[in-house]
């Protein structure tokens, strides 16, 4: 079973992912690729509270994920993979060939230096550069917060 969703979302495991996407994709497993969470048992416990019964959550760094991606793709478990930011998804793309895969931008929120692109998506130049490199690596990037929302292509996001 391929990985059903590669998503960049600052909130990682939260309502939109578990309820919005979860009710459409019915995943068995949520993989959170994030260095900070991978190093904190407390954070892992917090995020694990958010997954539905019968599903599992894994937490790892991009490097660790890079070594596991093939196994996850071959597994029978339906998997959703999440990163907090574009840079981590890019790091993952450098670890593993994501060419031809689709990456979903789900929620990058306002902070100083970021400009609004969509109501749920704010980008700074560093984000844009990372997105351009993802595209150069053959990754199809688009934004959509929920399955029922319109999909916005990368070209319309980076200008």
């Amino acid at each position: 079973m391929p990985i059903l969703l590669y998503r960049v979302d600052e909130r990682l495991i939260h309502g939109q992912v578990v309820v919005g996407w979860g009710s459409k994709l019915h995943p068995d497993r949520y993989v959170v690729v994030d260095r900070t969470v991978a190093q904190s048992e407390w954070e892992q416990e917090l995020y694990a509270l958010g997954i539905p019964p019968g599903t599992e959550a894994l937490f790892c760094t991009a490097e660790e994920a890079g070594r596991q991606l093939d196994a996850w793709r071959e597994s029978e478990l339906r998997t959703v993979l999440l990163t907090r930011d574009v840079e981590t998804m890019l790091e993952l793309a450098r670890e593993d060939d994501l060419q031809g895969r689709e990456v979903n931008l789900g929620g990058i929120h306002f902070r100083k230096g970021r400009e609004e692109v969509l109501s749920y998506l704010y980008l700074d130049e560093r984000d844009r550069e990372a997105l351009r490199e993802l595209a150069a690596r053959g990754v199809h990037v688009s934004a959509r917060d929920l399955p029922g929302s319109p999909e916005v292509d990368l070209d319309d996001l980076t200008g």
Binding site: R11, H14, G15
Partner: peptide, 13 residues
């Protein structure tokens, strides 16, 4: 509202 999700996470922290 919920026991999990972004609101619950912030509250727990």
């Amino acid at each position: 509202d919920l026991t999990s999700g972004s609101c619950a996470l912030s509250a727990r922290r």
